[in-house]
Write a protein that binds this DNA or RNA. Sequence first.
DNA 1: CGCCAGGTATGAT
DNA 2: ATCATACATGGC
Length: 274
Amino acid sequence: MTQYTARLTGAVPFNLQETFECGQCFRWLPGDDGSYTGVVGRNVITLRTDGDDLLVAGLDQAEAEQRLIPYLALDEDYAAIQEQFRRNTQLAQAVDYARGIRVLRQDRWEALCSFIISQNNNIKRIRGIVETLCNTWGEPLPGGRSSFPGPEVLASLTEEDLQPLRSGFRAKYILDAARKTASGEVDLDHVASLPTEEAAAELCRIRGVGIKVAHCALLYGFHRIECLPVDVWMKRVMSTMYPQGLPEELLPYAGIAQQYLFHYSRSHPELFEA
DNA sequence: CGCCAGGTATGAT
DNA sequence: ATCATACATGGC
């Protein structure tokens, strides 16, 4: 029986399933009662909806507010963002399909590393590889979960060491990212201070990080909500819905628009045929 | 079995 | 600059 120890009030709009299963994160698992359990830093956290509130297990009230309000983007004005999005007919459909999506503020390194693994891969297998990565090199946490291993831990490994991960050609990319990040050759704090375009260029110095992975890392790990990752699904969306590109007034929130569109297109593949 | 997956690096036009 | 292809592995 889960003991909920904190409550976040007024989490609207917010939906756990839509937020955790829309493809932005890979480590939140559904319970049998509508709850979700995941790892934030060194904490195993369970969340459950109670009306307009979120019940939190794994943190006390002060920690929950301090850590989860930013993590869950509860400080972002989604009412205003959605109101803007609804003025666009195409986007309105996607928003109405999953009104409870929020783009999370994840850990920078975790987002970068996870989306390196994501390239030319399917989400089911990404989840498996990330979980194995954590269980093998992260620190054990309650409930059989593990922390996401820091770059300094992975930096000392070899491709051979990573073989059990079954990450294929991405292994060398993971190691290059770990080494450059751990050494400060690519300094994520510095990246965070750069203008978006320069930040992306800096991340692209890592082997296996191209513009799409860089934009994912920036959007999900640095909360640069103007970043628009374009993968195979978004290519279909853009060509069928926005052949002229996203309307200019949406560009400041392109990353969030992308999240609704990405989720909608994956759920309605027939609408976006080649 | 064959095609595809939240792409990128590399080498050829 | 733009375009094709290889890349590891496994889901479906």
